[in-house]
Amino acid sequence: MNAHFLTDIEIKQFKCFTDFKASGFKRVNLIGGKNNIGKTAFIEACYINVGSVSINTIITRIIDIKYARESLNFIDRIVDYQNILDATKKYSVKSNLNSTSFFIIEKDAIKEYRFDINDESKSVNFNEFNIIFERINNILLIDNFGWTNIDLVKAFEAIQKQDLEDDLNYFIKEFDNGIENFKVMRDKPQCKANGEYRDITEFGDGLRHYISIICALYACENGYLFIDEIDNGIHYTQLDRLWELILTLSKKTNCQVFAITHSKEMLESFARVAEKLEDQDISYTLLVKNKQEKIKTIAMNYEVLLNSLAQEHEVRGW
């Protein structure tokens, strides 16, 4: 286990979570659970926690996740980032890495933002508040809607810096042998097919998602990659190859991966490939609600997951 990996997390308060604990995370972690159980909120909580090393970074992350969820609502509008931040009233998460919290205090006609990051605490008056975006390049989130061109181009830089374009093109050809090359031209990701470069937006969402994941794994060297709806647009015949890439590249780049799925095929593929590669550094975390409607986890390591799937346990379907 690498020292920078997130292994345990306690979400005291954030969105649908209160006094929630999860543990047993490994290098590659798959998160499952029924609709609206809080899977996305869970990886958002992790995403904020692992990368909050200063007030600027915690603010950036809280705004980024809210912006990602609401981006479609912001089209043709001037974005008020402070307003976005205000929508997240409370965030209090402690992990084996960081203790992080953010609260808005409104009392006696005074509004303050309160931040606690490990041993550092600070309150900032609403009128003095100034948002300074500060991102950490090796901690990335691929949200449900997929990456924008800007996100993809930025992650692709990591491949360019390491002269690994040929590797990427090889992986892309495995996915679709009709794609001859991938390049960024005029700040736009483009794929060459039938001798002609076209914007990646003209190809299927699955291809874009697949390329995003590979680029992100290189970009997140010694960091973290969070992927919402990992199987978005990916054909079931490609699932094993996708996991092979994630397991091998994450090991190579020392990147901890958290991915969400609803799909049983994805879970089975994950376990099958981990077994084939003899990679035991994996976990599966199932989020469920108990009788008191509190969110709980069922954590499975490599051995438990393989045993459970071999016996076709179907408790998930209650």
Partner: peptide, 10 residues
């Protein structure tokens, strides 16, 4: 596995 399910009331 069972312990996890028991703790989650499953």
């Amino acid at each position: 596995e069972i312990k996890g399910y028991v703790e989650a009331d499953e």
